[in-house]
Structure formats: C-alpha cells, structure tokens
C-alpha cells in the first residue's frame, strides 16, 4: 500500500476540480489580454492613452512600461490579473488546508490517525505550493506560446523568472493563511491574513511609486520584492526571489510549530 505523503495526495485529490477552475481563469486572462498587444500597444496608440491618464493612476497600476511587450505583459498579467487570481487561489487553499479542515471537523479525525501535526502542516503547505507552481508554469507556457503571435518580445529565462516571482508572491499569502489557520483554527482570520498581506504589499508598492520619500515602504512590500526590479524585462531578481521564498518558508515553518502546540477544536 502506498503510504508516501498521504495528506498531500488527499489534498490534491480533493481539490483538482478547483485547480482546473483556476487554470481556466489564468488561461482566459492571458488569452484575452496578450493577443491585444500588437493592436493597442505596439503602434504608439497605447502610449498616447497612457499619457492622457493621471500619472498617479499610471504609477499605481504600474503601466509606465506598457508600450513594450514585457511591460505590457507585466502590467496586465503579472502585476494585476495574474497577481489577483493567484493570490485569491493561494489564500483560499491556504486557509482551507488547516483552518477550513478544522472548522469542518475533518482535521480532528485526520489527526486522530497516524499523522503528526507537523506532517499535516508541511504536506498541506506542499500541496498548496505544488498547485501554485502548476498555475505559474501554465502561465509561463501560455505566455511563451503567445510570444511570437502577440509580438511580446520576452525571453524564456525572464518569463520563468517573473513566474517564480508571481508564485512566490502568492505563496506568501498562502503560507500566511496557513500560519494564521494553524494559530487560530479560524478560516475567516486565515483568509483575512492571506488577502491582507497581498493588499498591503500592493498598496505600499503603489505609494512608493508615487512618493519618493516613501521608497522605504518597498522593503515591507512583497509585491515590490517580486516586481520592482522588473524581472520580465531585466531578468530574474534573485534577491527579491530569495526574500519572497524565504518569507513563505518561514511562515510555513511557523505554521508547523504552532499547529503542534494547540488543541484542535472542531
């Protein structure tokens, strides 16, 4: 009998339908946005629209580079729709894994079997991570497939780098949702934490874009860690990636420790 990673496999088995749903969402976003680039981005028309918009709005949305292929892909997908989709998926999965299972009474029964608390938390984190990696990989593959027809002019290395940043950013939300779920057992709090860190990061980044004195806010913004160095046009930002993935790992480890100490109350 196969006994490797039982919690991980159960988690994937329970959520493959939702994973298909999110995959469709990511694919639809890319297939809607990217093919528009040659008609509205490449011929200077887009640049005129951007120049007519309030500069604060442009900076908030990160649309300064939108006339270039990498800038357009970053501004529409990685910085906005893809970010939203992956963070929402990550938060939903992260808060369901521990807090959701506890509130629904599943966690009590699972932990009454031969599964340790740490094993449960780590396998749950792994399951969420694998699902997010799949979404990141799918996005990268679609962008590369659309590269030629949509005249995006992006490189394989840079698309993979930006995907790593996006997945890392989503994993920060997922692992914080796991952590808060492990600490409190309450799904609403876990969801609020996962969504909250993403929103705060985005807001800090947007403020720093507009106010030169607020540049220090970038240090507190996972969104800035992911994208400030413009990985899609300038290549992977290893320092930013290390920060993102490091924080995700710390959150996941803390979730493991907290779950070990607590009463499970269904």
């Amino acid at each position: 009998m196969v006994r490797v990673l039982p919690v991980f496999r159960r988690s994937l088995g329970d959520s493959w339908r939702s994973l298909i749903g999110w995959s469709v969402g990511v694919a639809a976003a890319l297939l809607l946005y990217l093919p528009l680039f040659p008609s509205i981005g490449g011929d200077g028309e887009m640049q005129q629209i951007i120049e007519s918009m309030p500069p604060e709005l442009v900076k908030t949305l990160g649309y300064e580079q939108i006339a270039s292929g990498p800038g357009y892909t970053q501004g529409t997908f990685f910085g906005l729709i893809g970010f939203l989709l992956l963070v929402i998926a990550a938060t939903a999965w992260g808060s369901a894994a521990i807090a959701g299972a506890e509130e629904s009474g599943q966690l009590e029964l699972t932990l009454a079997h031969g599964v340790s608390r740490s094993q449960y938390a780590l396998e749950s984190a792994l399951a969420v991570l694998v699902k997010l990696l799949w979404l990141g990989l799918l996005a990268a593959a679609l962008i590369l497939a659309l590269n030629e027809p949509s005249e995006l002019d992006v490189t394989v290395l840079n698309v993979l780098g930006a995907s790593k940043a996006l997945v890392g950013l989503a994993f920060v939300s997922a692992s914080l949702a796991l952590l808060v779920g492990a600490a409190t057992g309450r799904r609403s709090l876990a969801t609020a934490a996962g969504a909250g860190i993403a929103v705060l990061g985005y807001v800090f980044n947007a403020i720093a874009n507009q106010v030169a004195d607020a540049d220090w806010l970038r240090a507190l913004s996972p969104y800035s860690w992911a994208y400030h160095e413009m990985p899609l046009s300038d290549g992977p930002d290893w320092a930013g990636l290390a920060l993102l993935w490091g924080l995700g790992a710390v959150f996941a480890a803390a979730a493991t420790l907290l779950l070990r100490r607590r009463d499970i109350i269904g």
């Binding site: 629904s104 009474g105 599943q106 009590e108 029964l109 009454a112 079997h113 031969g114």
Partner: peptide, 15 residues
C-alpha cells in the same frame, strides 16, 4: 502517530 495507529476512533461529531 505510532500510538494512534493502534487506536480506532469515532469522533463525537462526525462530519
């Protein structure tokens, strides 16, 4: 976990 493998448990509120 090793001890719990030797036990069968039905929780009070099975959901």
């Amino acid at each position: 976990p090793a001890l719990r493998r030797r036990i069968g448990f039905v929780p009070g509120e099975l959901r």
